[in-house]
Simulated scan of single mutants.
Amino acid sequence: MMSLVEIKGLTKKFHHFTALDKIDLNLNEGEIYGFIGLNGAGKTTTIRVLLGLLKATEGEVTLFGKDAWKDAVMIHKRIAYVPGEANLWPNLTGGQVIDLFIEMHGNSNVARRDELIQRFKLDPTKKCRAYSKGNRQKIALIAAFTSNADLYILDEPTSGLDPLMEQIFQEIILELKQQGKSILLSSHILSEVEKLCDRVAIIREGKIIETGTLSELKHLTRSTFTVETQKPLVGLTEIKGVQNISQKGNSWEFQVDSEKLPEVISHISQFGVLKLESSAPTLEDLFMRHYKEKSF
């Protein structure tokens, strides 16, 4: 696959504060890439560098093989961007704003615009000052999805949307992927990232601390087991990779590193298993594992 976005050694400093510290990231053609982290971790700063709104202090940032800072105007012809907070002209209607964005992007696909307005259940005749945050976000999404971009850069795009509209958003993202489009999805909604993304990167305090496919990342997390046995369950503490053991009567709950599952299953079977429940690791497990030592 061809790489559309290449970030190598990206560092961004604001005076003595290092907002981004030697970030490496690449996004391939036809891929949905999740970029996750807490607020203030560096997601939006990275996106602003990609958009040519901030100049990198160090490192290389290219989109479509062109420099993000020097070739920003050319790059913007091929991308669509949705921020987490859509600031719109208060005296224009939603429809007028959508049409303005479409015209600026050089795309006049009226049928696509009308389809998206219907799917997002937006009343385009209201003035923007009368819209809720969720409806303002719909306007930004409709304008972006109407454009025939090669790369969609979405920074907390579902902020303010209700669950039904989040579902519509997810359907459209998957449709774009089927068309061969590429998406960079910055979010702190882990369930959204887990449903949509092919690969993810976790950023914390300006550094990429984990990256890979979902299956690769889940391999590093722990499954949770609840076991009820006929005989007292002993010896769990002696197995490496078993954590957070707790007992309530004949029921035991613990977490197991994925690579130790066969050994644990073999061990507990000796004690007469009456009940066995397990929950697979999720992206949230991995995320919280990296952040658990930090205050929220």
Rank of each mutant, 00 (worst) to 15 (best):
F296A: 12
K231I: 12
G52H: 04
N26D: 15
I142F: 09
D71Q: 06
K240N: 13
H76V: 10
I202Q: 01
K138F: 04
A280S: 13
L185H: 07
G106H: 00
K231V: 13
H15N: 14
D114L: 08
I98C: 13
T11S: 00
I7F: 09
T57E: 02
R289A: 04
E284I: 12
I47Q: 03
P262K: 08
A201C: 01
I142R: 13
I102R: 08
E171Q: 14
L176H: 10
K292H: 13
E85W: 04
G52C: 08
S132D: 08
T46D: 04
K294L: 15
R289M: 01
F271V: 12
T211H: 14
E216V: 05
H188M: 09
L154E: 06
S215A: 15
K13A: 09
A80C: 03
D24M: 06
E284H: 15
Q137H: 01
D257G: 04
H16M: 05
T146R: 07
A56K: 00
E253I: 06
H105M: 09
L176S: 03
E216Q: 15
S295N: 10
S295R: 15
A144C: 10
T211W: 01
N109W: 09
T45Y: 12
D198W: 01
P157K: 11
V256Y: 06
R289W: 05
D21Y: 09
Q255T: 10
T226K: 13
L261T: 13
L50P: 03
I189Y: 12
K231N: 14
K248V: 07
S223D: 02
Y152S: 01
L185A: 05
F120K: 04
S108G: 09
L38W: 04
H290L: 03
L176E: 10
H267L: 10
E29K: 11
N87K: 15
H16K: 15
T237W: 05
Q167N: 12
L154C: 01
P83S: 11
K133N: 06
I153S: 00
T93S: 12
K292C: 02
T44S: 15
L141H: 04
Y291K: 00
G106Q: 03
F254T: 07
G212R: 04
K231S: 14
K275C: 06
Q178N: 01
P281D: 06
S187T: 14
E216C: 02
L116M: 01
A80V: 05
I98H: 14
D21W: 07
Q230S: 12
L141R: 11
N28R: 09
L51S: 03
L196D: 03
G59Q: 03
V5M: 07
P262E: 11
G272T: 09
R222M: 07
P83W: 05
D114A: 02
M288R: 05
R48M: 12
E31A: 05
E194Y: 11
S258I: 06
V73Q: 11
A19E: 09
Q170K: 14
Q243F: 09
